[in-house]
Structure formats: C-alpha cells, structure tokens
Write a protein that binds this DNA or RNA. Structure first.
Lengths: 229, 229
DNA sequence: GGCACGATGTCATCAATCTGTCATAGACGA
DNA sequence: TCGTCTATGACAGATTGATGACATCGTGCC
C-alpha cells in the first residue's frame, strides 16, 4: 500500500522541518513548500491526500490557497488542516467556512496536530489508515488486499480492486470516466475513456453474487457510482 | 431530505440549552441528554449523524461513551466531536486516538463549535450539509445524481435532470423557453423553442406521483416555473 | 529461451435510451 | 367564437452503454 501523501505549506523553516520529520515518522509521504503559489502547483501536479496549510505564508495567502484548492475540481475534496495564530477567532471560522476541514491554533503541540491529521485520515481515506472499508454488503481490506461480499471472498484483478476501493472511499457519488481515469489510473495515463466501461463490467462481474443486486449504478451521460445502500 | 440528526451529550444545563438552540438554528435535529449511559441508549435507538460529547459527564465517562460508540457496528462510523477542558492535552490526543473526529477546548465560542460541526458534516454527509437541493417534496442530490420525491427515487433522463436542477436552483421563478434553452442546453445550441415543451412534458411525467400535484407551472405566453410550494 | 497465463487496453457491434421535430388535439383568453 | 398558445403521441435519427472478442504485454515457470 502506498503512503498517504501530505502536502505541508509552512514558511517557518524550523517548524516545517519539525513537522516534516513527525509526519514522516507517522508514515506519511511529505512534500513541503514555504510558498503558497508553489503549493498550488504541487497540488495540481500530484493531488495529495491531505494538506496542512499555514495561514500566514509567503506568496498567495493561506485562505486564498484554500479557496483555490477548493475551486479546482481535482483538489476540491482534499481535506485541509489550517494552522492559525492564537485567538484569531474570525479567521478560524472563515477558514472552516472556506472549506478547511480543521485548524490548529499556534502554538500547538506537534502531537496534537498529528493526532488531528490522523483522525481526518481515518475518516476520509480509511483504506490509507489501514482500516477496512464497508459499503453495503461489501467490505474491502486494503492492507490485506482482500474484498468480501456477504462474507464471500471475491477475486478481483488489480485494476478492479483499485476501482472498487476508490468507489468505496466515496460511496454514492457519481464519477465521470475522466475522473475515474485520473483517480484510478493516474492523471498522466493516456487511456481511452471507453476503457473504463470495460473495467466497470469486469468489476461488476467480479462482485456479482446470485440473489444480490448490482451495487454499481450507471448514470447515463454522467458516469458511474457505487450505490451507498 | 431530513435534517441531520445530532446527539448532544452535555451535563451543564445552561450550556446544553445554548448549544441546542444554536444547532437547531443551523438546521440540525437535536437530541440532548446530560447522561452518558442514556446517550448510548439514544444512539442505539436512532443512530445520529453526529455526536457532540462532553468529556466530563455524569454516568459513563466521555471517553468510555466514545469507545462504546465505536465498538457498536451501527454507530462505529458516526463522527464524534469532543468537548474538553482547557489544557488537558493528553486527554485531547487520547480522545482523537480513541476515535473522536474533532474536539473543542472549553471555553469555546458556540460559533466555533458550530463551524467545526458544519465542516465535519460537509465532509461526511454532503447530502445532509446543504449540497442537496430541496424544493417542496422534491430533493435533488447533484453529486449522487439522484432525485427523490417524497422519498421515492425518480428516474429522469439527462436533460430532464438538468432541467429540474435548474428549476430547483431558482424555485418559483418563471423562465421563458429561450432562457431555459440558454441555461439547460447552452447558449450556442440551435434548437427549436417548442422542443422545450416536450422536455417539460417529459419532466412532468418523470416526477409525477399518484396523489401529488404537478409542481411545474405553465405560464401562458411567458414560460414555465417550478412551484416553490 | 520458450511457453502458459492472467491482466489490460481497444474495437466492433448490438441494444437500450434519449432527443429534436412534427402534426394534431386541446386549452385558454379576449 | 376565434386566434393563439400549449399538451401530447408518434417517430426516425443520434447517443450512449454493454458485451464479446482479440492482440499485446509482462511474469513466472519449465
């Protein structure tokens, strides 16, 4: 399993280094930058699993970075943890309303920040935190690379496994073929959109059980979704 | 769509009342109790969408409640926000590690707590956090691409879906056929005005329910509107 | 090296559904 | 009543998704 990718945007070199060390110790793949604009570029290049963002940074301001991350479809759903100065109450709330998922007030203990980030990771990408995903009668253990349906072990190919995992991380949501290609195959893949259809079919075939409804919903002219049930 | 259900566990009557008031104002269906054991019973009876839990409460302690909520399969995935005393750093981290999703340190501003709860709701249940359009007995979830009427799932074609979505974004307003073409088909489309009539009919047929009035209003020589009801 | 095998990406084709237009019947207001 | 505007059923063409087949590629095994 790949480590969860964390983008750290912090312009105090000492603090940045400390946090990078801590997060790496927790098993995160950390990319750090002191600059807001560069952060946006990095986020576009490779979408991180979580962003830790200082409010007061060089270049584009923290809230602006937050807003832009939210505006771009690819990064719109990446959780953001803001680091704010103590007492700036309005800033905090504005941050949360802008789309940050959490904030931590300086000065903070690294342990606290790590605990908060872990809590969010558990919630957002349980598979990355070594937990079992459960949607309807499906359960997927990313660590063991195992998928069960009603207790039955299913045999899925690698691509179908990643596809199902992605669906289970966002149950109910509809994704276009392009989004699925980006998420499951990678943004740099150069693959026919129609190929997604074929893998959807393979996934369906892989998870079908007699007497159980097909949880993969086709949304004409929009894409596919995993039925939340 | 129903309001998100929030279970509030707080034994300070004044604070409990204040928070209950605030959360109700935000559109939550609040159930409040001062007692940890009762909280567990209530949570089993009707699984809430989110729990706000004071660390120091009568009966079973906060962390124990948290642990038990996590242990029970039905409530294992319900987000929990803890209220802790200032400075109890270890408690905070223990709380997060136990499975709480967030905590707020007393004394806190109700606005902050509400903002945090909203942020979590956005993340967890987008459908419950205002990303669902609701007009009368219709509800439309754009991310899941689903339309419900009185809880019934409706099957709409792509164009009817876009048409209804547009209407629901501007309930009550009358739009000419030209405006509808621009908004739903795109400004560069080159389509007969009369075609709108046909899709209005298809939309009506798609959302009709026995015993329910037609919410699409025809305004002679002007256009159509979705009845705000 | 040579072979078997599973995985993967593409195609061609079929079936289902959707769409825009018409012609006609019906409703409404003056 | 008349003229105007809307509702409706039918339809052919266009999209879109499902499916089976196939060539390729890499891996492990002999």
């Amino acid at each position: 399993m790949t480590s969860p990718r964390l983008l750290l945007v912090e312009d105090d070199p000492a603090l940045a280094e400390l946090l990078e060390f801590r997060f790496k110790a927790e098993g995160y793949a950390v990319t750090a930058t002191p600059d807001g604009d560069e952060a946006l570029l990095l986020a576009q290049e490779e979408v991180p699993d979580l962003v830790v963002l200082d409010w007061m940074i060089e270049g584009t301001s923290g809230i602006e970075v937050c807003r832009r991350l939210r505006r771009d479809k690819a990064t719109a759903h990446v959780p953001i943890v803001m680091l704010t100065a103590r007492g700036a109450e309005d800033d905090k709330i504005r941050g949360l309303d802008t789309g940050a998922d959490d904030y931590v007030t300086k000065p903070f203990s690294p342990r606290e920040l790590v605990a908060r980030v872990n809590a969010i990771m558990r919630r957002i990408r349980p598979a990355l935190a070594g937990e079992t995903l459960i949607v309807g009668d499906l359960s997927l253990d990313a660590t063991a690379h195992k998928v069960l349906r009603r207790g039955q072990v299913l045999g899925l190919g690698p691509t179908e496994f990643r596809l199902l995992k992605f669906f289970m991380e966002h149950p109910g949501r509809v994704f276009s073929r392009g989004q699925l290609l980006d998420a499951v195959w990678g943004t740099d893949s150069d693959i026919e959109l129609r190929t997604v259809d074929v893998h959807i079919r393979r996934l369906r075939k892989g998870i079908e059980l007699p007497g159980a409804a097909d949880p993969v919903r086709t949304v004409r002219s929009a894409g596919y979704a995993l039925e939340a049930v």
